[in-house]
């Protein structure tokens, strides 16, 4: 199967700190890839480079054969790359429903209307479907500030998928969520994404989550990818155990 995303030789430094050293990553359509590594290992820098928030010093990023290196987030998003955030980036003055409506409206229009009511029947039908897929129906009218952390994560991710991306990057989808809520949350996310061809790269610190939901794992350390294989192999790798998981046999 051909690669959907192919990052080659990405290098990024912030002053004296090198955040990415010759990082090369490939993912196929529909693949679920876990990105693991300690804080500062380069996972988020990689996500930021792919989504256009940070421009790499060297290297290239191809999406479906199209070079998206250094393009701004707005343009990268239009090419089919979406992301969620470690700290959910929501519109605080709006309800979850309005947040998702906003995301749907931008995703479905080349040119946004200045006069037509935002709540068109087509968009509302799609919104109801999205609310159901992410089990957000009961929260639709709440204030964002009053939402539990896990629900905010779901709204954040639901907004990211409105553009029907080819590649979805989830930055720590279970961080800040209570231990007993992590698996149900990931189940909702994965079932909502099931059936499509979207490739999902998710940054995660919880190895149980990685072992259960990833088909392949990339381990980052000191700005480099030190392992790239199926979860059991990567999590059993001595270097990964020493530098990433901290479980030394």
């Amino acid at each position: 199967m051909t690669a959907l995303i192919e990052a080659r030789g990405l290098h990024k430094s912030f002053g004296a700190v090198v955040a990415a050293r010759d990082v090369s990553v490939m993912a196929r359509r529909g693949e679920r890839v876990g990105l693991i590594g300690n804080n500062g290992a380069g996972k988020t820098t990689f996500v930021n480079m792919v989504t256009g928030y940070v421009k790499p010093d060297r290297g290239s990023i191809l999406l479906d054969g199209i070079d998206i290196t250094g393009l701004p987030p707005r343009v990268v998003s239009r090419h089919g790359v979406s992301r969620s955030f470690q700290m959910p980036q929501l519109f605080q003055s709006m309800t979850p429903e309005e947040n998702m409506l906003m995301a749907l409206g931008i995703a479905r229009s080349e040119r946004l209307s200045s006069w037509r009511d935002a709540r068109t029947p087509d968009l509302m039908a799609e919104l109801h479907d999205l609310l159901a897929r992410f089990r957000l129906g009961e929260y639709r009218d709440r204030s964002i500030a009053a939402l539990p952390g896990g629900v905010r994560k779901l709204v954040d991710i639901a907004m990211a998928v409105t553009r029907r991306p080819k590649l979805l990057l989830l930055d720590e989808p279970t961080s800040g969520v209570a231990a007993e809520e992590k698996f149900p949350l990931m189940d909702v996310i994965m079932s909502a994404l099931a059936g499509g061809e979207v490739a999902v790269l998710f940054v995660e610190h919880d190895m149980e989550i990685v072992a259960r939901y990833a088909e392949r794992v990339l381990a980052f350390y000191d700005g480099r990818v030190i392992a790239d294989d199926i979860p059991t192999t990567v999590l059993g790798n001595e270097e990964v155990q020493r530098y990433v998981t901290g479980i030394v046999q």
Partner: peptide
């Protein structure tokens, strides 16, 4: 009430 009008609120927020 249009999508572009709501987008202003969104831009103010985030």
């Amino acid at each position: 009430d249009s999508m572009r009008g709501l987008l202003s609120l969104a831009a103010r927020d985030n």
